[in-house]
Nucleic acid binder design. Sequence first.
DNA 1: AAAAAGGTGCCACAGTTTGGCACTATTCAT
DNA 2: ATGAATAGTGCCAAACTGTGGCACCTTTTT
Lengths: 244, 244
Amino acid sequence: MTPHARQEVILRHLRRAGSATLQEIALSTGASRRTTLRDIGSLREQGFLIHGDSGRGGGLRLDPTSMTLTARLSVTEVFALLIAVASLRAAGTLPFGSLADTGLSKIERALAPEQVRDFRSLLDCLHVGQLSPLQDLKSVGQIDPDLLASFERAFLSRCRMRFCYTDRRGETSAREVEPQALLVLPPLWYLVAWDPSRDGFRHFRTDRIAAPVAVNDLPFRRRRVPFEKDICPYAELERRARPA
Amino acid sequence: MTPHARQEVILRHLRRAGSATLQEIALSTGASRRTTLRDIGSLREQGFLIHGDSGRGGGLRLDPTSMTLTARLSVTEVFALLIAVASLRAAGTLPFGSLADTGLSKIERALAPEQVRDFRSLLDCLHVGQLSPLQDLKSVGQIDPDLLASFERAFLSRCRMRFCYTDRRGETSAREVEPQALLVLPPLWYLVAWDPSRDGFRHFRTDRIAAPVAVNDLPFRRRRVPFEKDICPYAELERRARPA
DNA sequence: AAAAAGGTGCCACAGTTTGGCACTATTCAT
DNA sequence: ATGAATAGTGCCAAACTGTGGCACCTTTTT
């Protein structure tokens, strides 16, 4: 058994049992007393608060705040969770306040330094509005399952995104744009992108996007996205829905 | 540099560059060609899809679906994220469908077998309703930041929970109950618990709970929580708010 | 055919982990 | 007081593992 696996076993054992003696733990990992003690030391160095009680009836206890799970999530999944939390916070329907914040900052703390930059820029490109459920929007389609992943890849590596778009009038065209932001106005999501062929910003309703792919060729620069009402064609909708 | 750290560097490098030759990667980690190749092998064993192209102009590519971040989250944070995702799914305001599902199953896949049981039972005890924002509920307070952690500890280790509760009439009393479920009716959360001193189920509005702690002494058995309207005093509210 | 790339097997050396031992400090029961 | 049970430390030799170099194979492009 590798040291890392052994340490996971120790954490699980401590979490489950609440308190355990060194002997018990050593038995559960199959390692010697000495090695177990070294493992405990290593875990403490990693920031786990493990309290030791000497003497008869003593043992080791894992501080409740140190009980963690290690999750390996794809970037897209973290992104999706991020949107979930941000939406809830924006909607204000759940008393999430501090919870959501600790969640985000903890995720950030768990990432490698290089990943934090990506995380931040994804967070920055995400705009969540407060559109309540609208009665006059019956025809909300399914979002292409590849959309988030494509957007995130294109956005992070600053390469163009290509897809088929069906506009309001039902006309379909092939687009190749520079993705700049994601606008969430529940229940609709919009991709905000610079369209080079039209030399201007465009909003694309994500449920009208088909077959999105990130194109690796052409790197582009980020632009300041104007979120003024005259740029966002749906700001009016949002204003209408918001309780004055 | 430890093997694990080196492998992280390799993943970052591949994720960033899209494609890289063995030489480039070896240079970035400082290890030899042979060791790098061994690291790649190890990553593949861990489930990362790394594609290799022989020949001139070839190189190694990390499959986009394998781009992961490792996050170490406390159980409570995973629980909070879980509630966030479940709420969104229940509300149906976001076209989250498949996304939310993959998110949950991926979290589950990332957990150790023993942890999956806890994850499942937390998922099972979570009931999310569809209460829309109510105009007549102005006085929603803040939820005690320790509440989720205390509930989760008490629920998982089947021990009682103690707190101060201020009821509808403003009267405060000390309670000691067996937590059975968490009922989320946005924007309100309710703790559903068996109250031994009253020999029945009680619903506690979480924003009226103060100083929650898990009491380690008395283990109890889980009960089937009746979610019929005559048990839940707020079902009426929910019915009223739901669009008929 | 040659060059450039990934991939495998082998081996000796270097470095790390491991278990045992002796030891100290603390706590509790008798 | 004494002894037993517990956490914790220092040290060392043996066992194990990771590492880098080498020769060699396969595939692809020029």
